Amino acid sequence: IMAGGFSVINWMKLGAVVMSWIISPVLSLVIAYCMFKIIIRLILCKKDTYIHALKLSPFFIGIAFFVVVLSFLFKTPLGKKLSIEMPAALLISLILAALVGFAGMKLLGKFVKKINSDGAEEIFRRIQIGTSCYVALAQGANDVANAIGPLAVIYFLVNEGNVGATVPVPVFLLMFGGVGIAFGVSMAGYRVMDTLGTKITTLTNTRGFCVDFAAATTVLIASKLGLPVSTTHAAVGGVIGVGLARGLEAVNFRIIFKIMIYWVLTLPASAVTSMIIFKILQLFLF
């Protein structure tokens, strides 16, 4: 806006992005809610939760692995290089998911022992390691791109003098973004972790699995559609979903309201900050 006025902004695209910020937590909420309801009905309501969790572990491991493999094969450089179309991608993903799911069940049965009456949580505590990696993958597919996209344009502009419709992104810039996110998590991420993990609703390993799966799946879908969304937004939706699956009283709506206020303020606050910085640089450099 400061450089070229309101006319240089693609307001339709911006509107689509803003809508994705609303849709992504809602979609994550629905996925997490449904997934946790399935776990409640098929596992947590049973007498021996450990046995039922172990028997059904191939499904929960497999469904996460299925989405990951499909995201790598469908409409990606790898998929194009291997000439893999949608039917083949679905079949390959399904076969690999089944193999990994049953292999995971065997490993869980061998290494995870029932140590208390709540054995399902022990099973899902291990499964959640995988789904947490799934979240990291989804975050790399979207959040890193959000941060590095503008930097890639600047880098290309400095080196080439102009930019086209698409800009190649050097690998070192992606690595730079990944390292930056890792440092951010280690230095300041604990506050967000505390809010998501304790202040919205009480989380267990089964609920955490649902949140991880819902958030990562939502972000990967958005990445495929080319929409920049926040993994945190999706995770909040997932946490609300597992809370609502236990009843309205299980959700802290006061903290949710505060989070939503911050979400609304983020865009204008960022825009104003960017405008001020640009104006300062313009005064000193031009």
Rank of each mutant, 00 (worst) to 15 (best):
Leu267Ala: 09
Gly184Glu: 03
Thr266Ser: 14
Met193Thr: 14
Asp118Glu: 14
Met35Asn: 05
Gly208Ala: 05
Val211Tyr: 06
Val171Arg: 11
Val153Lys: 00
Gly164Lys: 03
Ile61His: 09
Gly208Lys: 11
Val135Tyr: 06
Val167Cys: 01
Ile1Glu: 05
Phe111Thr: 13
Phe278Asp: 03
Leu99Pro: 08
Val185Asp: 15
Asp48Ile: 15
Phe111Asn: 11
Ala64Asp: 04
Gly119Ala: 09
Met12Pro: 14
Ile181Thr: 09
Ala89Ile: 03
Leu265Arg: 07
Met105Val: 12
Gly15Thr: 06
Thr231Arg: 03
Met187Asp: 00
Ile277Thr: 11
Leu70Gln: 07
Ala250Gln: 03
Phe253Cys: 07
Lys199Val: 09
Arg254Leu: 13
Gly15Glu: 04
Leu44Arg: 11
Thr273Gly: 01
Ile9Asp: 07
Ile51Cys: 00
Ala16His: 15
Ile1Arg: 12
Ile31Ser: 01
Phe183Ser: 01
Phe74Trp: 14
Ile280Arg: 05
Lys258Gln: 12
Val18Cys: 02
Ile92Lys: 02
Arg126Lys: 10
Thr204Arg: 05
Leu173Gly: 06
Leu70Arg: 04
Pro87His: 06
Leu94Lys: 11
Ile39Asp: 02
Ile123Thr: 02
Ile129Ala: 07
Ala141Glu: 02
Pro170Lys: 11
Thr166Val: 12
Lys258Pro: 08
Phe6Cys: 09
Gly164Met: 03
Gly208Asp: 04
Ser20Met: 10
Ala188Pro: 02
His233Val: 11
Asp118Asn: 14
Ile148Asn: 03
Leu203Asn: 08
Leu54Thr: 06
Thr131Ser: 06
Asn142Gly: 09
Thr195Lys: 09
Leu78Cys: 07
Leu108Thr: 11
Ile277Pro: 04
Ala89His: 00
Gly180Asn: 10
Trp11Val: 04
Asp212Arg: 00
Ile277Ser: 08
Val69Ser: 06
Ile115Cys: 11
Val26Phe: 15
Val229Ile: 13
Leu54Trp: 03
Trp11Pro: 04
Thr266Leu: 14
Pro268Gly: 04
Ser274Gly: 15
Ala3Asn: 04
Ile256Phe: 13
Arg126Cys: 07
Thr204Ser: 11
Arg125Glu: 10
Lys113Leu: 13
Ala136Phe: 15
Arg41Glu: 12
Leu27Glu: 05
Asp118Ala: 14
Phe60Met: 02
Tyr134His: 02
Ala145His: 12
Ala269Leu: 08
Lys106Val: 15
Lys13Trp: 14
Ala216Asp: 06
Leu107Asp: 03
Lys81Tyr: 15
Pro58Leu: 10
Asp143Arg: 00
Ala145Gly: 10
Phe253Gln: 10
Thr202Ala: 08
Met12Tyr: 15
Val264Pro: 00
Pro77Arg: 05
Ile61Trp: 10
Val167Lys: 04
Lys106Tyr: 14
Ala182Thr: 08
Ala138Trp: 12
Gly247Glu: 01
Val8Tyr: 13
Ile256Ala: 04
Leu70Asp: 05
Leu244Tyr: 07
Val153Gly: 01
Ser223Tyr: 08
Gly247Ala: 04
Val169Asp: 11
Leu151Trp: 10
Ala235Phe: 08
Ala120Met: 06
Ser186Met: 15
Ala188Trp: 14
Thr273Pro: 03
Gly197Leu: 09
Arg246Gly: 09
Cys133Tyr: 09
Ala141Tyr: 09
Arg41Leu: 12
